[in-house]
Nucleic acid binder design. Sequence first.
DNA 1: TAAGATTTGTTCGTATGTATC
DNA 2: GGATACATACGAACAAATCTT
Lengths: 252, 252
Amino acid sequence: MTDQTTSIRPRKSRPERVAGTIKEWIVEKGMKPGDRLPNEAQLIETFAMAKGTIREAMRLLQAEGLVVTRTGPGGGSFLAETSRDRANALLSNYFYFQDLSVDDIYAVRLLLEPELVAGLAGRLTEDQISSLEAVMEDYARPAENSEEERKQHVASLRFHALLAEYSANKVLGFFIGFMSQILTDLTVFRKLYSEPNLPLWERGRNHQIELIKALRSGDAERAREVMKAHMEYARHMMDAQEATVTRRFLNA
Amino acid sequence: MTDQTTSIRPRKSRPERVAGTIKEWIVEKGMKPGDRLPNEAQLIETFAMAKGTIREAMRLLQAEGLVVTRTGPGGGSFLAETSRDRANALLSNYFYFQDLSVDDIYAVRLLLEPELVAGLAGRLTEDQISSLEAVMEDYARPAENSEEERKQHVASLRFHALLAEYSANKVLGFFIGFMSQILTDLTVFRKLYSEPNLPLWERGRNHQIELIKALRSGDAERAREVMKAHMEYARHMMDAQEATVTRRFLNA
DNA sequence: TAAGATTTGTTCGTATGTATC
DNA sequence: GGATACATACGAACAAATCTT
């Protein structure tokens, strides 16, 4: 056995090492979003590398959502707070190749969303509740065809994503928002033989009306129960539909 | 008001547009991990751009974990399945600037982990159970000082991460594994006045022993209950400890 | 072992675009 | 509008890694 001259993992390229070093700076110096990073010329000098190499390093950090760059005087690279959208997109990349079932997502939603609304009860501003009600307007009437139904489905996912944004628990909020995003991106076709089911639609809508009521009055237990019932209903609805067809990368 | 010549969002750079186009290819052509992307020379020709520009585009995709490149004959860029580790790291970037409380994480763990083990009961191979037991060996004895206790804490998080890997529900597994990762990276200092609590340690250990037993025998309900108790215990333990101190980026 | 072929990795010099003053 | 300070992009050359013979 020779030693590991041919290591299993390839030696990191210079741009990768530069990006790693810059990350260390960020942690060590306790830099905050908006803080300025050295400009290209300075980085070229401190790392003693060519412009192209430095630029590739910055692209790495940019892809991770950690820096943004601006041209012009006073421009340069700035530390950025990774946006929720970008984090969603990057995580979507991971799940793109995992064949996850819709039911897996609903199983997790069933666990998380009731707790989300329980924590929200009595804590929403009137503005936030108005936003929720505005989204509900998009499915105030039962769908008449499958295309309309798809749109309503997307709108109802927006309702849940909005709730997630309002959560004080960042982890809970992100997970739920991410699942809404994934479900929005999935194109789901209803089975041809399953006709629009009016009673079920009405039941789902009543759930949300009851939910709003409980959120307003601050009845956490009631909110939890209603959301649980709603999630079970939604899971059942999805069960009656056909396979997920189009997956796509988010534009990021 | 003039029209939006000065659009809110800056025009995307060429590398960004190239990366976006390549992503579209991947979706449209239904490419799978391991598939080959055009080499630099071909990309330079098809996009009619300079080598540096193309390379920056590939760095963007590389940062997202979507491609890996190899030098030499037969080398080039290949579509890669974003690894769990990389997805964890990228998501960690997002939470790095969010000030999330440890209790938020435990609130979510309390919801998810009982369901995880319920789904695992009776479905683990003997090998998998052995791996779990091997990890448990790392805290078979009560800690004698705080450093030792920290190591045991990390080991116990490995236990949970391992369980997450075994889950058939990819979403559930990822979320739980991610939270373990976050907690592992947090450096938590025990309050000086809170001495190692032997009865509590013993109780925690008994939980895991009971859990293994339930997983072996396929008793889903029992597994769920034990994990719930265990999570409540863990949450209580963390409550008795001091603020999170060091956060860091994962090396990715 | 060694040489040659292939492909990415890195450098340097120059020119262009863009935002601020 | 002109000067300034910055990122962005191009092109040619050379270096390094890796596979084949």
